[in-house]
Amino acid sequence: MSLMASHNPSAIPGARFMDPVVLARIGNLSLVSRAVVDGFINGLHKAPYFGASVDFAEHRGYVPGDDIRRVDWRVWARTDRYYVKEYEAESNMNFSVLLDISKSMDYGSIGMTKLDYARMLTACLTNLVHHQRDRVGFVAFDEDIVEHVPPSAKHMETVLHVLDRLKPGRPGRLREPLHKLAEHFGRRGVLVVISDFYADPETVVDAVTPLRFRGNDLVVFHVLDPAEIEFGFTNASAFEDLESGEQLPVVPEAMRKEYRSLVRAHIDALQQRFSEVRVDYTLLDTSKPLDHALFRYLSSREKKLRLR
């Protein structure tokens, strides 16, 4: 397949990943998500559909009030005691992607913007989750909530459609829209937040954490362009802030080192703070294939499930 790229990240041996830039050229999110997810699944040796409701979890002693249909009669026959079988109740989980579409996301130095990347990521995740027959939903926000697709088993196409016509416009804020959303998600589910997190780590964590309050599982993707991480500019130029429009004369060579260390410290702080509040945090470089992100998501899910 010509679309297949030659990336071969050592983290996932055997997986075949597609260059996000190539994917971006496809344009059709549905196709993209399918291509990625199918390729990804094919590459995995483990079955992807874990969490099915038939999975046995554990036995526990019968207490009055338990449904007698759940009594394990085989165990009763062996032990003459009543035990009730418990299963993983993962079916029909709510899954929502919260996507930051602020102006700063509209930046890309390698042919695709962070928003494009996030869009594909969303499509892929939605597709993946839809395959599991979970309910998918979608929220786009900048300084307020811009788009909202409630989670539903039938909303896969809607989500892809909404994703397709997203336009970045306004400066972004995390706190207000996410706090609003935290109140909205009543039912437990999985929430994926995708943003570039241009705010203090404290502010970010403070904005994101309430999403967990109702028992939601929270996965955070921090999307950054390689230029934002490496700061590989060479010419002295006026740098213009995409959101505020403010300009600043910058000699990149002179300040690269300091910039990098600041970004590194920011990422480290986010990582640490999120791990403190038990939120999955993943830094995504838009030059890296999407599969990497999917793998991180799934592996984290798996970890979560094992923990239960």
Partner: peptide, 8 residues
């Protein structure tokens, strides 16, 4: 030269 950058 003006370089547009996500955030300063």
């Amino acid at each position: 030269q003006v370089v547009r950058f996500p955030s300063l």
